[in-house]
Design a protein around this nucleic acid. Sequence first.
DNA 1: CTCATTTGACCTTGG
DNA 2: GCCAAGGTCAAATGA
Length: 406
Amino acid sequence: MTLVSSFLSDGDDCKSFSQLLAGAMSPAARPPGFPQLEDRSSGDGDDNSDFRFKHNRPSPMFSVPSPGLLDSPGLFSPGQLLPRLSAHHIFDTASAFTSDSTAPQEMPSGAADSGVAIKESSDISHSDQRSQPSSFTVDKPNDDGYNWRKYGQKQVKGSEFPRSYYKCTHSNCPVKKKVERSIDGQITEIIYKGEHNHERPQSKRAKDSGNPIGNIQANPDLASRVHGGHLNKSKKGQESSQATHDHLSGTSDSEEVGDAETRVDEKDEDQPDPKRRNTEVRSEPASSHRTVTEPRIIVQTTSEVDLLDDGYRWRKSYYKCTFPACNVRKHVERASTDPKAVITTYEGKHNHDVPASKTGSHYAANNNASSIRAVDAGTEKINKMDLRNSDQQPVARLRLKEEQIT
DNA sequence: CTCATTTGACCTTGG
DNA sequence: GCCAAGGTCAAATGA
């Protein structure tokens, strides 16, 4: 919440995505191979401009990491509300790639280490056109710091845009990426796959040392917030877009993100492309229905640790008390600094008794915000409890540490 | 001439 | 095994 508010109140309507990312993702936090955002000036042949978006809105938008990020085995025992993505992780980056015309919207090629895909908002690009001439129509992947060679292009069923295939030109580097562009040249999706077995080309500018993913990850709430509240302006795919937003938006409450994420993923599972290979995960039914206003990052990796170890902490999910009229919510997130650390945040106060069926279980402890206890049951230990109750929004925080992860 | 891109054919994968 | 779709190859093309 604070994070969101800080962003929103920061008046950073002109803050570039790169900047945001840079700020959010420190080199140390970035997993090995995570490329940094760079200034387009040193484009490596990829679409430098494609990611250069500018947003007038004060809200940087990105949407976030799917629950999969935190979905490590045994990590979140409570409920298992989130669909497992196992090796695939989705980062719904909404318009995070929005932001500033001076900064290039760069690919988290770093994510490429494990595979990442990003979808960007065309409307964002449109808004950028004012300050950014049509340079983004170049049919190259965005500049993510690595050098790519295009080896194929194909019209993918279900997508209104052609998909281009690129390989990292570095010798023996197995990394590939797929890029989908709208007819006007705007990237609608980028999927990284594989891990670079080399350093990013030195020639690439290190201007922005941040990583999109890192930034995105660092601001999930913000991302979702914007995503849900301000991105419905694409020219096409409005219907599906709406569908997605219906899930993502809900309220202006940034905390909805967790829920949104979950539902997005569920949606994804509910409406998979029958022909799609299971090597990818998307947050939407089909590209043809998807609105380009929803940039996203799709991570394909064999190691969840890589994603988790990005220096940031991620909220796995958002839970809401199902009792009628009860507004209590809780959020479960994981501290990146310690993969075993889990932070559960309770919000609100139950206006009812513990359901009989739950009495006696660990849920019973959640009778109200002030009696949080063993929420996630299991082996975690309460490390710190910080109860804050204000008139407007009672908040209770419970920090759980040393959760057993197996 | 060199190198990157284009593009149709071929291969792989999964239902 | 067949078919459809995604992915890759490689000759053609262009800068």
